[in-house]
């Protein structure tokens, strides 16, 4: 196999890939929470839907990268339908309403997945060039994981450009701080809430198809990811994008390390990390309730 250096490289890259997937899911959740104060319990299920749609698109002969663009858009359309039908009418009510509604939606989506795709695990067929390994500093690292890492960096870069350079991005950032003033500048806040929800769902779908090749696609993947992404946004601070970046890398790293040394206790160690951080910083690392 490989020496110590190879193991370090393996663990580092695996941490980044896992942390990156957590980050994209968690940021989607955070955008929705930061702008609309909605905790989307169906977020993990939408991530799973993204993975399954990606699987079906590739299985039907579509190029993997084309599927990478189309699957998140389909999840975005599903998100739009969800927002218009069950989220928007509850906007003026307490957060408990959307919490319960999206919790029910999670069961509906999980059930739909089992109905359409069944219980058996699925695998996304990768393009040939992504199936090999590449020698890096004493280890043979899978090419598809490197491509995944690159995609995560591209997605985060695009998201940052969107939030910082476009007018819609500026509106979203302003709306996470003083929404009332944004509406006084002529912005219809119901479109802001709708856009935030759809954007969050697109991120979930994107993470789903990206993570598809990393894990097996099965009906449990959504629930597991929902919990992991909650851990990330709780550690990072609810609504904070920068906090989510730090927390995702932290959780990705700790989980990868823990899996390497004590596989059975990996998740336990992640929860201990969360408990310790919350004991000293009850609002998470960068929790201010705003989003930047």
């Amino acid at each position: 196999m490989s020496g110590t250096l190879g193991i370090i490289v393996d663990i580092t890259l695996n941490s980044l890939v896992l942390g990156g997937v957590f980050l994209i899911v968690a940021i989607g959740l955070n955008i929705i929470y930061g702008l609309s104060r909605i905790m989307n319990m169906a977020h993990g299920a939408l991530y799973a839907v993204g993975a399954y749609i990606g699987f079906s698109l590739v299985a039907s002969g579509l190029n993997f990268f084309a599927a990478l663009l189309i699957a998140p858009l389909i999840v975005g359309v599903i998100g739009l339908i969800i927002e218009r039908t069950i989220i928007a009418p509850m906007r003026k009510r307490s957060m408990a309403y959307t919490l319960i509604l999206t919790y029910g939606l999670m069961f509906f989506l999980d059930g739909s997945i089992k109905y359409i795709w069944g219980n058996k695990p699925r695998f996304i067929e990768l393009p040939e060039f992504m199936q090999g390994t590449l020698p890096i500093l004493g280890t043979d690292y899978p090419v598809f994981r490197l491509v995944t890492l690159l995609l995560i960096i591209l997605i985060m870069g695009a998201l940052m450009l969107f939030l910082n350079k476009t007018k819609i991005g500026i509106i979203l950032r302003a709306s996470s701080t003083i929404p009332e003033m944004v509406s006084c500048l002529g912005v219809n806040m119901s479109y802001v809430h709708m856009g935030a929800f759809v954007l969050g769902c697109v991120m979930a779908g994107l993470a789903g198809i990206i993570a598809g090749p990393l894990t097996t696609i099965d009906p449990l993947m959504g629930g597991e990811m929902l919990i992991s992404s909650f851990v990330v946004i709780v550690i990072g601070g609810l609504g904070s994008l920068r906090g989510a970046v730090i927390a995702a890398l932290l959780v990705g790293g700790v989980q990868t390390l823990a899996e390497f040394f004590i596989t059975d206790l990996a998740m336990v160690i992640v929860y201990i990390l969360m408990a310790v951080i919350l004991a000293f910083m009850p609002r998470g690392l960068l929790g201010e309730g705003k989003f930047e």
Binding site: I170, I171, R173, A174, T177, I178, V182, L185, K290, E292
Partner: peptide, 14 residues
Amino acid sequence: HIFPGLSVEENLRL
């Protein structure tokens, strides 16, 4: 109600 996290220019352009 100046938006925190937005630059002076972004506050105006918005």
